[in-house]
Design a protein around this nucleic acid. Structure first.
Lengths: 355, 355
DNA sequence: CTCTGGGGTTGACACGTTTTAATACGATGA
DNA sequence: TCATCGTATTAAAACGTGTCAACCCCAGAG
């Protein structure tokens, strides 16, 4: 009585159980089964029950490829972020998944790893899968790949990336303001020389936060030469360590304070500084960006700039699905949030406390 | 060889450009285009060049749904982890993505959030998408949903989850040994009473690490009553904080040391302890599990148990793809890695140093 | 009784690709 | 010259679902 071969048991092993098999089992036509699945209100209560019973009994699972093929688009959306290992983006992803699954959409999650070649490759996979729409945190500013998608009729919402173009939706946080907040906090603490530790400048996040820092410097009456820039290849803790080592190797006059474009960078910097016996914030003040969960628990609790990450994901997804569901008349929106300064120990220099 | 019917202008707006349009443009049959895409060696150099030119000019992108429908399965694999916000799993995911994309597979990444209902729902999405195979870190031990997939002919490799069943592949790390290492380290430091902070016991990871801890206790000649267990609802930092508060509220005789089933839990515990003015490791020693990147940078650098995360993902994917590509004769493997103790400050109690 | 209307159901086709059996064609050997 | 063979290409038949026009049947109106 082992369930080895097809010995009279319900058709578990029958190669594939499709809409037709269900129809036969329920004594209706395939069209009716399709109606039960897609417009249940059009089919009489009794037949509907019979079909649903058959579906359960046969363990039918709708073939998504066939649906997609017929419909011209699937019920999945693609989400492409810069770095899956960054808690900032996993928070965003959580917001995306929550809204999407609430509305019956599945999410294909993908990461470009800050490489535009991987971005292109993964966007092509999205295109092949005929995703319904795409949420994209672009690596560069070249909107080329993005435009090709939109030409194909695939809505794209830019995520954590503002756009001046009225022809598309975007959700972002004001990184210039955030950079100004961060640098301003360091300057208010008494710093006269700053270092800016950053990832690749092609990343808009880095460029904007730098711009904000420069603005703060100017407001404090300091020149551009008060800012030393250290650019590394990625925005993770490992690169942060490299940046700190470079700063140390550069020689004795360390900057008064360091602004990192990212909490991951800041944690890496912090680690190397402490290992070198440098006191934070006494010797050097430090501030990061994103306010990820681990920053508060760091060796020296890290000051940072908080962004509404989860909201970012939610709003972006709502905009995208709105654009998908609306036929033609969709009003594109460019949403911009404001960041918030979070002051912890790493920037509370002994000298410059509260005013 | 002159323009056939299209009047000079690139066919951007033609509703959908499929294999047929390419064929017409290149003056061949659709079958030949398909051959160019899938078995280029079968088609003459000259025609192949012509077809490839047409593909570029029309911006053709193969329709994955149609391929999948025809083939019966797609060229994507599904990856379901317990918690995307846990760096342990993002490291694993990196290993998976690297191997998969190397072999021309795309990855659909999904997270059950330690909820078996979400696990079932997301596995159903995998089934609808007709993924080629699934990498699964199951929430519970009920292999039901998993079995249904395998009945459908979808290979499933268990990830971070050992199995005694010879009928399926699995890749795991010995969590009993790891738990024993962790608790052993605390006991070697002089602790006589322990707390075990853990997530839901349905999670095998938690159950096994507890088993290892008990084994270490026994080896040290201590009874089961030397271990106080604090179980919380999830394995993240927030729950860790809750656990620590519960320990503090329970009254003055704190345990000598705390073993957390997870670094996230440990970081949460650490934070609350420090805020309460409790010295780590002097008053209470602490050890976590997974050795995530942030543990080394914590307020008190966290001792932990390291696992070969990236390798875990790689090997699991290799096994899965091997099973997918092999027709029938596939030898299932159960791979088990050994964990490694990483001692840092949080477990170096003043009393018990080196032997 | 017939006629009309409408809810419920059906059947057939289309979606874009892959695959298989069949075809065209030029070259080779008898 | 014809038969044979191999290579390059083609036409046609699936894959499983959604859609839409057609159809059936019965209730109610005339």
């Amino acid at each position: 009585m082992s369930a080895d071969d097809d010995s009279g048991r319900p058709a578990n092993l029958s190669r594939t159980v499709g809409i037709k098999q269900v129809a036969a089992h329920a004594g209706v036509s395939p069209g009716t089964v399709s109606n039960v699945l897609n417009r249940p209100e059009r089919v009489a209560e009794a037949t509907r029950a019979r079909v649903e019973k058959a579906i359960r009994e046969l363990g039918f699972v709708r073939n998504g490829s066939a649906s997609t093929l017929r419909a011209g688009h699937s019920s999945t959306i693609g989400l492409m972020v810069l770095d899956l290992a960054n808690p900032f983006f996993t928070d965003v992803a959580r917001g995306v998944e929550d809204i999407a699954s609430e509305r019956g959409y599945a999410v294909i999650l993908s990461s470009s790893g800050e490489s535009d070649e991987r971005e292109r490759r993964n966007l092509r996979v999205f295109a092949e899968q005929r995703v319904r729409g795409v949420l994209l945190t672009p690596v560069g500013d070249d909107s080329d790949a993005c435009d090709r998608l939109r030409e194909r009729g695939v809505p794209v919402v830019l995520l954590d990336h503002p756009t001046p173009r009225a022809s598309q939706c975007s959700v972002a946080v004001d990184d210039v303001a955030g950079g100004e907040l961060a640098a301003g906090e360091l300057l208010a603490g008494g710093a006269r020389t700053l270092a800016f530790v950053t990832g690749p400048m092609v990343l808009r996040q880095c460029a904007d936060r730098r711009k904000g820092a420069l603005r703060a410097l100017r407001a404090a009456g300091l020149g551009r030469d008060a800012l030393r820039e250290v650019a590394v290849g990625a925005m993770n803790a490992r690169s942060g360590q490299e940046a700190a080592r470079r700063l140390l190797e550069a020689g004795p006059p360390l900057p008064d304070a360091i602004f990192c474009a990212n909490d991951l960078l800041a944690l890496g910097v912090l680690r190397v500084l402490l290992q070198a016996g440098i006191k934070v914030p006494t010797d050097v003040a430090l501030i990061g960006y994103d306010d990820i969960e681990f920053s508060a628990a760091a060796a020296v609790p890290l000051s940072s700039v908080r962004q509404p990450t989860y909201q970012l994901g939610r709003i972006a997804t709502e905009l995208l699905l709105e654009e998908c569901d609306t036929a033609g008349g969709h009003a594109h929106q460019q949403v911009m949030f404001q960041p918030e300064l979070v002051v912890r120990e790493s920037s509370r220099s002994a000298s410059g406390g509260a005013p």
